[in-house]
């Protein structure tokens, strides 16, 4: 019986595929690589690698402690490489994001609400970042997160730098 090797990528070892054009513009395919983006990002920059109307996928380099962030809707963090600790607190009423806020925004201080719990996630693990929670990431070594969320004030767009253009 053959032995199969499943290949995942990492910050240290990734190989990009690409768009081979026959009759089209490569920019229409918005082709990038999560590990390549994280390798060239500062810690906890939220760089969009996917955008579908208001919804985004953000590639995040986790390294050290993030700021405390707060969200009014569910988000989901998938660890693509490394290990990331997630601390969750319930937002107190006066910490709730302003009405209509999409994505996550900085909290700016230690959360006042009760601690909800802690998750330690490694490659392939998906963590719920629940609505009306504050969260902070911590990574002892550089790690990579893919965040399912909605575009917010801190979402960064670098399509021209990260995508295949020719």
């Amino acid at each position: 019986m053959p032995t199969y090797v499943t290949r995942f990528g990492s910050l240290d070892q990734y190989e990009k595929g690409g768009v081979e054009i026959i009759d089209d513009d490569p920019k229409r395919y918005t082709f990038s690589n999560i590990f390549d983006v994280a390798a060239h990002s500062r810690p906890y920059e939220k760089v969009a690698v996917g955008k579908n109307r208001q919804y985004v996928l953000e590639a995040i380099r986790a390294e050290g402690d993030s700021d405390w962030r707060r969200t009014a809707h569910d988000e989901f963090a998938l660890v693509m490489d490394g290990e990331v600790e997630v601390i969750l607190h319930r937002l107190s009423p006066d910490e709730e994001p302003p009405e209509g806020t999409q994505g996550s925004i900085q909290l700016g201080h230690e959360p006042a609400g009760p601690r909800m719990g802690r998750v330690v996630a490694r490659r392939g693990h998906m963590t719920l970042l629940p609505a009306h929670a504050a969260y902070r990431f911590r990574a002892e070594k550089p790690a990579v997160l893919l965040l399912q969320t909605i575009e917010g004030a801190d979402t960064l767009y670098r399509w021209g730098e990260i995508c295949q253009t020719h």
């Binding site: 990734y14 190989e15 081979e20 395919y29 082709f31 590990f35 390549d36």
Partner: peptide
Amino acid sequence: VEDRDTGAARTRVVMKPGDVASMP
């Protein structure tokens, strides 16, 4: 990848771990 309405060839997209691509 082909044109949706005619089937004319547009691209080949080779995707490896961590790659992200949109399909128009």
